[in-house]
Nucleic acid binder design. Structure first.
Length: 212
DNA sequence: GCGACAG
DNA sequence: ATCTTGTCGC
């Protein structure tokens, strides 16, 4: 697939993204992340399903497959979604909400990783990125819980959220079937102690080949 | 044309 | 993303 084709797909599929709350009672929240092996030749995806609001690990899965798309800013989902789908197909519980390691609609064509995954499986998703792809925002107070809208071309595409006092903020944006205010709320409720949500922390550990 | 640029 | 131990700071 070429970047031109991928761009066309993003423009097409972005029209189907829903950014209003269309999620039911959340009993299970999942985190997904991707790591690599053999000098990036193999992609390794991990899924961690936690109970909500207790945030206890309930189920997990890992999948591997050859990496078949390079990392190109704006096209991350074409690299990571396939192997993530493999991992998701292994779990028994269908999560009520999934937190993704990357952007949702805070993307040039409003179709980041969380949107792509959410649309393919029809599950509410939130993009929780550790750094910015696009957009601008005001300064953010250092205390946990503060947030500022992330804007791009006159639109609010997400929020910069302080998940822990005194540390770098998180870039939160709706993926699919959830609104920005609700997304911010869930991210904070999944982040009781550290900078990253418990879901992401578990998926990170599993995807990076070490446990503990 | 130049700089930015999720993981 | 990944290679990696100790170390600086609240």
């Amino acid at each position: 697939m070429t970047v031109e084709e991928a761009t066309a797909i993003q423009n097409q599929l972005s029209r189907e993204i829903i950014t209003s709350d269309q999620l039911g009672e959340v009993k299970y929240v999942a985190g997904v992340d991707v790591g690599f092996e053999d000098n990036y030749a193999i992609s390794r995806a991990a899924v961690a399903v936690l109970s909500f609001p207790e945030l206890q690990l309930i189920e997990q899965a890992i999948a591997r497959r050859p990496t078949n798309f390079p990392y190109i800013p704006g096209f991350l989902s074409f690299r990571e979604v396939p192997v993530v789908m493999d991992a998701l197909s292994q779990i028994k519980i269908t999560p009520d909400l999934i937190l993704c390691d990357g952007q949702g609609i805070a993307h040039p064509r409003r179709f980041g990783l969380a949107c792509h995954l959410g649309l393919l499986i029809t599950v509410p998703t939130i993009g929780v990125a550790k750094s910015r792809l696009i957009g601008q925002h005001e300064e953010l107070p250092p205390e946990k819980g503060n947030w500022q809208p992330l804007r791009h071309r006159g639109e609010v595409i997400g929020a910069v959220v302080r998940s822990r006092t005194g540390v770098k903020p998180l870039y939160v944006s709706p993926g699919h079937r959830i609104s920005l205010p609700t997304a911010i709320d869930y991210v904070l409720r999944c982040t009781p102690k550290y900078r990253l949500p418990e879901t992401t922390r578990w998926a990170d550990k599993l995807a990076s080949n070490r446990i503990g």
